[in-house]
């Protein structure tokens, strides 16, 4: 696994069908939708969030799950309207907020993985999400420290 070009494969369940790829943006913290992101720029704005001021537009967003207001789905729906939605979403904890938000964002989305994506994927890795086949292909940006 020390080769920078080594591909890692994760398998999971399709939440929103489709295929897409992009650079990973990974957070171990849950994401708040309404009041937590700026839908016009796709930027995290929550005061104490580790990704504050960072945009997920066009990225493969890897996160534990959703928290906060029921405006979650609308906030992410609007990122699609404004053209700043994530390229794909991968998460661990299923809730109605994240499920509906993913559906209306219409970006390929998966959950229920064989390995925790938060342990495997790092920000900057190149990630291809094939939600139709239930496969995530990760190309490490940096040589693994493991």
């Amino acid at each position: 696994m020390s080769d920078a070009m080594t591909k890692i494969i994760l398998r999971g369940r399709c939440v929103v069908p489709g295929v897409s790829e992009g650079e990973a943006l990974v957070t171990g913290q849950q994401i708040s939708g309404w009041g937590g992101i700026d839908s016009r720029t796709g930027t995290i704005v929550e005061t104490r969030h580790e990704l504050r001021d960072i945009s997920f537009a066009g990225k493969v967003l890897v996160f534990p799950g959703a928290k906060g207001s029921s405006g979650w789905s609308n906030a992410f729906h609007l990122t699609r309207t404004f053209g700043v939605a994530p390229a794909a979403m991968l998460f661990n904890e299923m809730t109605t907020k994240v499920a509906l938000g993913a559906v209306v964002t219409r970006a390929p989305c998966m959950t229920d993985f064989d390995h925790n994506p938060l342990d495997v994927i790092e920000t900057g890795d190149w990630v291809r999400v094939d939600a139709d086949q239930g496969v995530v292909e990760i190309t490490k940006r940096l040589p693994s420290q493991a």
Binding site: S70, G71, S73, N74, T95, K97, L100, V104
Partner: peptide, 18 residues
Amino acid sequence: NTEGRESVGAAMLTGRIP
């Protein structure tokens, strides 16, 4: 559950929710 704008829109027209 915590529903969102789209699911309650669908619920009020159908009388259904997951």
